[in-house]
Design a protein around this nucleic acid. Structure first.
Length: 995
DNA sequence: CCCCAACCGTA
DNA sequence: GTACGGTTGGGGG
């Protein structure tokens, strides 16, 4: 072990105790063996191992050990016979679990440590001090106050149940003394649970105050006669020896002779088959499934490991030395009460690799016929309950809703479908059955009395009550396709889906940039199957009907097939995450965002229709004025909004010099072309540009937005798409609230219509220059890093470096050019593009770029290495490992290739920034809840580098620092950025002023 | 009725 | 030079 390493020490006995008491008792299904504590222990360990690598603890362990008490016979008992004498014997049902928990530890491939005569705490203390001595960091997984004496700047404790780290300040806050005085404090207070006597009448508060005053226990005892309070003085004088004895008892030994040296505690990789074998034996189906998914194993191909259970009073069993477990020859036999060959031996069972599972699943599902005639229609509650029970037993179910609208805020539930895998064959063959549950179908439309409730449907409230038990059961994985839709819809019915996967998001993580991730496309790609087209059941265009008017038999085929296909896609796609090393991206950047975005969409934002209506009127008047002037100048009336007609007027009739052609050969009438003509002194083009701006604002915003106000909530609910960009950004639609005008004064007026509810403010918090900061980080550019560290004007710095102009008194034009170059770099610069942007010659732009690369050679290196990586792999990666694919990067067409190269250069920058704000969004709600804000602060919108919240007036001042802090540290602890992130936040009653 | 091109709003 | 979505006009089926 060396400096920089990180040792995790789990207080195994503490874990057992907490697992046993925190959870309802659980017995093994097949033989009634109590395994509740084993289950709790395994779940806690699994959570710790997966979380520890990222957010919860904030550090990645290099070394790891689970430490147990050996028995109750310790040196302390020798010292003081009454030590822990009042401890009652462990509960009967816990006894057989002690051995199992040690087996569990080994199944997790973790060192399992104990030592005769010592408590776990002494071993932990010894390892801690040894690790500290070589400069390593230590995290002790426990919240036991007995261990707090070990806390130093390098040694932390971590309460995994409360997800809370305990450092020196936390000890002081809790006990009133720093960690090094904890021993004296415990000596004074004693400990009733361990029967440590202490001094009667002295509790933690008094003890802390005394230690503060006298410094330490010895000084206190020596000067006890100075204590003013009579009773207290007498107690202390009379019991000084007891206090000294107590001190010995609570002082942890740091000199335990360790059987397993520190260096052997290296954290090994998870051995999937080993762990799964054990978990299957324990019949922990949910955890088995999770582990199998995480490590890409096919659980059905792994046999339960033989584990001998010993009933009876033996709490510990024969001596077990960890050294034997780690014997290199793998031949060590361990006579543990529960040892089975698969666990006692260092020869680990071999199982299918993630790649094997990927292939097996692809073979099993691609091209397999899907019989849509086999689907069942569930028309009564008992049948539904049977299906739900089967789904819960299986632990895996695909779920899909059918509704009357694509907008989840307006949709009415019409029915839902379920698909279950009957995975009975250990060979891995899987039978899938699916069913549709109609709830609100109506009788035929042709019917004169049409529109009535159709017969043979379960009452919706009864069906939803049954469904709720399934969807909210965390031990059943719900699989959906575009699950955010169903999540939001079910949330509107009071059901909060717990434990879920989304095949659309899995596909997006695997192959962003390679086609879309809709179900039909995925089905074609992975299953070789064309699902029934929606328009084939609902019709299209004017003759289309809503789903409630579709015949139930036809609806069953369509809806059940969707669930069926979704489950098949999950089978095929999910193992690919592990095989491609993308599980973390999916689990940390994608899946958690589903509930976050669903809540944001459900909340919506208030838009003042009066303001918009007034603006519409103003825009109409101004546009009309321009129209008459335009007709006057053109000499005729025409459709100004038609680029074709406008081109004919300008370049045909008026004979103006055409600037450029579009790719279809038409004259371009772009704003750029019109501006150029205006600059040359022609009057008409300027008016066209102004007219276009006004009509754009009117048609896209002031006229359209009121139509999105929800009839019930009176708010506007945008829809965020998680899977529609190549880079990892979100997109927003219906309405798009990510392109509300801001650049012109006229446009900004539209933002004043986005308002907070009375008694609240809108708080806008936006990242400053996040993409340039990401660039400075990934390309590691010293000048950029320095400039950001110093908080100086980044564009002025660039200009100064390039042109040798001092920042003081720099002409605006010089800075403007540098700014354009900085943006150009992010976009994968070309001389052509930069020349266009700045209105300069290509050759001059080329000179700028050359100069820039001379000053910042690291940027050139970054661009070249990114292009090379993309050419080699067909994708690029963000700093968090998200992939963006560019399948055309090797195109023989130079234009196509160059375009893909620029996009590939841009993607890690734009995508890393997108990942950072995603992390902020996932973290900010829990952080605000922890800070006690609850629903007083509600996140409403995301605009790529900006988050908008609605905050109760009284909470604004206190909530803003929390928001800013979460955003600025959002990359941590996964990535420690080489540049600081900066967030600006403002509060106002409308979006314009808050921004 | 559907789709595409052109244009333009945002980061 | 990157990434999106919405509106309009206009052509083709």
């Amino acid at each position: 072990m060396k400096k920089g390493d990180h040792l995790f020490l789990v207080d195994g006995s503490g874990f057992i105790f907490r697992a046993f008491h925190a959870l309802p008792p659980l017995t093994r299904k097949s033989d009634g063996l109590p395994v509740g504590a084993v289950a709790g222990f395994c779940n806690m360990l699994w959570k710790l191992l997966t979380d520890a690598r990222d957010t919860s603890v904030g550090v990645t362990p290099t070394h790891f050990a689970v430490v147990f008490d050996y028995s109750s016979k310790t040196f302390r008992k020798e010292l003081y016979d009454a030590y822990k004498a009042n401890r009652s014997a462990p509960p009967e049902e816990l006894v057989p679990q002690f051995g199992l928990i040690r087996e569990a530890t080994r199944a997790f491939n973790l060192p399992c440590i104990e030592k005769e005569g010592f408590e776990a705490d002494d071993i932990i203390a010894t390892y801690s001090r040894q690790a500290e001595a070589v400069g390593a960091d230590v995290t002790i997984i426990s919240s036991d106050k007995d261990l707090m004496q070990l806390v130093t700047p390098n040694v932390h404790m971590y309460d995994s149940m409360k997800d809370k780290q305990i450092g020196i300040p936390d000890v002081i806050e809790k006990w009133g003394v720093p960690p090094e005085k904890m021993i004296d404090l415990q000596a004074l207070t004693g400990d009733s649970t361990d029967n440590v006597p202490g001094i009667p009448g002295i509790g933690p508060k008094t003890a802390a105050q005394l230690l503060d005053e006298y410094g330490n226990l010895d000084a206190l005892l020596a000067r006890a006669d100075e204590i003013k309070q009579v009773k207290r003085r007498e107690n202390i004088v009379a019991n000084a020896d007891l206090a000294r004895l107590s001190r010995t008892l609570v002082t942890l030994r740091t000199d335990v002779s360790l059987d397993v040296p520190l260096d052997q505690l290296v954290l090994e990789n998870q051995n999937g088959p080993l762990l799964i074998g054990f978990l299957k034996t324990m019949e922990f189906n949910t955890l088995t499934r999770r582990v199998a998914e995480a490590c890409g194993c096919d659980a059905s191909a792994i046999e339960p490991a033989p584990v001998k259970i010993e009933w009876g009073p033996a709490a510990h069993g024969p001596d077990l030395e960890i050294g034997e477990l780690q014997a290199e020859d793998g031949a060590a036999t361990v006579a543990s009460p529960v040892a089975g060959p698969a666990f006692a031996s260092a020869a680990l069972p071999s199982g299918p690799t993630p790649a094997d599972l990927v292939k097996a699943r692809a073979d099993a599902f691609h091209g397999k016929t899907i019989d849509i005639g086999d689907y069942q229609t569930i028309r009564d509650l008992p049948t539904l309950e049977v299906w739900i029970a089967a789904a819960r037993e299986s632990g895996l179910v695909a779920f899909d809703t059918e509704t009357t609208s694509l907008d989840p805020m307006l949709a009415d539930l019409v029915g839902f479908s379920l698909a279950i895998a009957d995975n009975t064959h250990s060979a891995g063959t899987t039978e899938i059955r699916a069913a549709y549950v109609p709830l609100a179908h109506k009788t035929g439309v042709g019917d004169l009395l049409g529109g009535g409730h159709a017969d043979g449907q379960i009452p919706a409230d009864a069906a939803l009550t049954a469904l709720k038990t399934l969807l909210e059961d965390p031990s059943v994985l719900k699989v959906g396709q575009n699950l955010k839709y169903d999540y939001l819809l079910m949330k509107r019915h009071g059901i909060v889906i717990e434990s879920f996967d989304d095949t659309m998001l899995i596909s997006y993580v695997l192959e962003a940039g390679r086609g879309n991730h809709g179900m039909d496309a995925l089905s074609e790609r992975w299953l070789g199957h064309t699902p029934i087209a929606y328009k084939d059941v609902a019709g299209s265009g004017k003759s289309s009907v809503t789903f409630d008017l579709i015949d139930i038999d036809k609806a069953t085929a369509y809806a059940a097939e969707d669930a069926d296909v979704t489950l098949r896609l999950w089978m095929v796609l999910k193992p690919r995450l592990a095989a491609d090393g993308l599980t973390k991206v999916y689990e940390r950047l994608e899946r958690p965002l589903i509930p976050v975005l669903a809540r944001m969409e459900e909340r919506g934002i208030t838009v003042d229709r009066q303001i918009l209506s007034r603006l519409s009127g103003e825009l109409a008047q101004k546009a009309a004025a321009f129209e008459s002037e335009i007709y006057e100048l053109a000499g005729e009336r025409f459709n100004i909004g038609s680029p074709k007609q406008l081109g004919d007027i300008l370049f045909g009739k008026m004979g103006l010099p055409g600037g450029s052609k579009t790719k279809t050969g038409q004259w371009s009438t772009s704003a750029q072309v019109l501006e150029d003509l205006a600059a040359a002194g022609v009057e008409l083009p300027r008016k066209i540009v102004d007219w276009r701006q006004l009509t754009k604002l009117k048609s896209t915003y002031t006229d359209a937005l009121p139509g999105y106000v929800h009839p019930q909530t009176k708010r506007v609910h945008t829809c965020y798409s998680l899977a529609s960009t190549t880079t990892g950004r979100l997109s927003s639609s219906e309405p798009n609230l990510q392109n509300i005008p801001v650049r012109t004064a006229e446009g900004r007026k539209i933002r004043t219509a986005f308002i907070s509810t009375p008694g609240h403010r809108l708080v806008s918090a936006d990242y400053s220059q996040i993409e340039l900061r990401v660039l400075a980080h990934v390309a590691d550019i010293p000048q950029l890093r320095q400039a950001f560290a110093d908080g100086i004007d980044i564009h002025a710095m660039t200009a100064s470096e390039m042109f040798g102009v001092p920042v003081e008194g720099m002409p605006a034009e010089v800075r403007r050019r540098a700014k354009a170059i900085n943006f150009g770099i992010i976009y994968g610069i070309s001389a052509f593009g930069l020349a266009n942007q700045l209105g300069i010659e290509r050759s001059e732009a080329g000179e700028y770029i050359k100069k820039y690369f001379e000053r910042f050679p690291g940027i050139k290196d970054y661009m070249e290495s990114t292009k090379a990586f993309a050419r080699e792999n067909g994708y690029v990666e963000t700093i968090f490992g998200r992939r963006a694919h560019y399948p055309e990067i090797r195109s023989s067409n130079p234009q196509v290739r160059a375009f893909n190269e620029r996009a590939a250069i841009n993607a890690p920058i734009q995508g890393s920034a997108a990942d950072i704000i995603r992390r902020a969004m996932i973290k900010v709600e829990p952080a605000l809840a922890d800070a006690g804000f609850g629903e007083r602060v509600r996140m409403l919108l995301q605009v790529h580098d900006e988050l908008i919240f609605e905050v109760e007036d009284d909470a604004v001042a206190d909530a803003m620092p929390v928001i800013v802090s979460v955003m600025e540290h959002a990359a941590m602890p996964a990535i420690s950025m080489r540049v600081p992130l900066k967030v600006d936040a403002r509060a106002a009653t409308n979006w314009d002023e808050a921004h």
